[in-house]
């Protein structure tokens, strides 16, 4: 039986709530299911004390989750949109990420901040952003961005068990996607990328919703005789450069694709590392696909004009292989 991305996130939360009494869910409207229904039914099953609604106070609830994590709970906090994480940035950047370090290893923050990012047609400039690169700039934060329902399930369970603060970035365009959860699936490791499609002519490095676009692009270029390997990074910190490098040493051509703007983005980081470490392996300039450098506009026609998509990846692959 196939399940949606939302249903598999819920299943992961439900199972972890059942397995570990330290796990608590926290956030605006989470007892009613949250804005997208991810936590629906969990308060009824696990009790209102374990699935707890909060006021609209992102700074305080991020701090509350962090303080509780210092004292042995494993809070899973929902920040409704990644755009609202700006209000919790001080806590995430200055405290959660640094407690273990500043205390010389005395403290730990086993907390997951679930949020969702990306554009999905008409949510405009403050509910559509992809802000992950801000967080990869902060030592001490783990950043996870799952690309499919099954990946979301496994990575969320792993994140809850990790023992360090995780920003878990879902993508609203993936929420309705369906997949069947295989029986006895081993949980993915945090910090290990996966080869989503094997190929030999070019490596497309991507994550989150753009993995789907990259797979579509790989299908299209296959018809033109080009074999694209698609790497799903899964986690942006830690970045699995080993898997990336192994692919690049095979294909010698690189396209990096993400929905976020290119300026100062994840792609820039990977491109710099590849140029520094594998310069001699590269047969073509590294190409980045990303959002145009503009806020996300409201009108869906305009939104489509700035967002990167399958066609952009196809063009980038063709250019890299020309």
């Amino acid at each position: 039986m196939s399940q949606t991305y939302i249903e598999l996130l819920r299943r992961a939360l439900d199972e972890e709530l059942s397995l570990d009494p330290a796990v608590h869910l926290l956030g605006e409207d989470v007892a009613a299911g949250g804005a997208f229904g991810v936590t629906k039914g969990l308060a009824q099953k696990h009790g209102a004390r374990r699935v707890r609604n909060t006021p609209i106070s992102e700074a305080a609830i991020a701090g509350l989750a962090t303080g509780a994590a210092l004292c042995g709970l494993r809070p899973v906090l929902e920040i409704m949109f990644i755009d609202f994480a700006t209000l919790a940035l001080d806590c995430l950047v200055n405290q959660s990420a640094k407690y273990r370090y500043m205390s010389g290893g005395q403290l730990a923050v086993p907390m997951v901040v679930r949020t969702q990012a990306g554009a999905a047609g008409g949510a405009a400039a403050q509910h559509s952003q992809s802000l992950e690169s801000w967080f990869i700039h902060v030592p001490g934060l783990v950043v996870v961005a799952p690309s499919s329902p099954v990946e979301a399930y496994g990575l969320l369970k792993r994140s809850i068990r990790l023992g360090d603060p995780v920003l878990f970035i879902e993508h609203k365009r993936l929420y309705a996607l369906r997949e069947e959860l295989p029986a006895n699936l081993p949980l993915p490791d945090i910090g290990r990328a996966r080869v989503a499609r094997a190929g030999c002519d070019v490596t497309v490095i991507t994550y989150s919703a753009m993995v789907g676009s990259a797979l579509e692009a790989a299908d299209i270029v296959a018809g033109q005789g080009l074999s694209a390997e698609v790497i799903d990074l899964r986690t942006l910190t830690p970045l699995d450069m080993q898997t990336v490098a192994a692919s690049v040493m095979k294909t010698h051509r690189v396209v990096i694709a993400h929905e976020a703007v290119r300026n100062g983005g994840v792609g820039a980081e990977i491109a710099a590392r590849l140029a520094g470490e594998l310069f001699d392996e590269l047969d073509a300039p590294i190409t980045r696909v990303g959002c145009r450098f503009a806020p996300i506009p409201f009108a869906p026609e305009l939104e489509r004009a700035v967002l990167p998509g399958t066609a952009d990846i196809v063009r980038a692959v063709q250019a890299a292989c020309a």
């Binding site: 962090t66 509780a68 210092l70 405290q95």
Partner: peptide, 13 residues
Amino acid sequence: AGIPHAAGAAWAA
């Protein structure tokens, strides 16, 4: 910034 963390510790208590 430490005030909400204290509340979180109190929530755990």
